[in-house]
Design a protein around this nucleic acid. Structure first.
Lengths: 158, 158
DNA sequence: GACATAATGCAACTGAATTGCATAAAGGTC
DNA sequence: GACCTTTATGCAATTCAGTTGCATTATGTC
């Protein structure tokens, strides 16, 4: 996981000035096992290092633009941000729990989508791929065994 | 593609009363080669069969809930709706053009993601999968050859 | 035709993200 | 260090997509 020095040097590598805010945001993302929503990042920041919402969005945008951070879509309407996997094409799927909204990385060896193969016959330029699995996570399955699904519609209807 | 009678009978099959509005919406989706945003559906409707925004959203929700229509996420913040592929697990990827926002279905034989395999080791319940490719579509490549990408950021920044 | 149920419309609201502009911080030059 | 330019951050207001609550209209059944 990325410590403060790591975040700082990552930013410098990309020619970005390592302001405290940026270092913090990158650090939070580096310490999270799964991608986070701006809200979650914001909440974490509030405790120690409050910053304006807009600033957070702008920092995230910039990190994505410089390839340090990956932005993925979850089943709901908020994007999630996570440290970018270093190797391109080593993208992994994400699991979205439609009950609690949590996101998990899925390390699935069985998924080998050959973007190159598709590119051969596809007339547009493919730059990126995103795979998402929707369902109910382990915790929600355990906690709500026997209960009515209730919020399950969230997957489709955030 | 679905003609009016088809839409009507599809609705009846699901026990839904085939109101003019519903038949129209289902017809539009059936005649489109690619999934449409509510905005696009709305615009199409305006010409011949104006209806309230909310009604459209509610009809779409219902069609999704009854499995007639599939709701997918594009690279931007609007969902897209398309007739549901009849066979489950025959999901296909969608291509999102980050320049013009259009969506295309990709029929890629090379993509065989075995959800069952993932399910064996994944502790949650997987109910659905979505694969999306982001890039620049054929048209935008042609029209903007040599020009600066300009709006390309849309993929990440709708 | 009367009535209950379902469908639609309208207005106001929410949540996530964005824009425009003002202020504050960094960084370079003398 | 003072001055100035560039870059970051903050604040307020706005957009965009979708949702909620409630009134009104249509549909179907007896």
């Amino acid at each position: 996981m990325a410590h403060r020095e790591d975040s700082t040097s990552l930013l410098k590598q990309k020619g970005l000035t390592p302001t405290p805010h940026r270092v913090m945001v990158l650090g939070i993302l580096g310490n999270s096992p799964s991608p986070l929503s701006p809200q979650e990042i914001f909440a974490t920041l509030q405790r120690s290092h409050p910053m304006n919402r807009v600033t957070l969005y702008r920092i995230l945008d910039m990190l994505v633009a410089h390839g340090l951070v990956e932005r993925i879509q979850s089943g709901d309407r908020a994007f999630r941000y996570g440290l970018n996997a270093q190797s391109p094409h080593a993208e992994h799927p994400h699991f979205y729990c439609s009950h609690c909204g949590s996101i998990q990385c899925v390390h699935a060896d069985s998924i080998h989508v050959q973007v190159e193969d598709i590119q051969k016959t596809f007339p547009g330029l493919i730059q990126r791929m995103e795979i998402r699995l929707d369902g109910i996570c382990k915790n929600c399955l355990r906690n709500h065994k026997g209960k009515k699904a209730g919020n399950e519609r969230a997957a489709q209807k955030p």
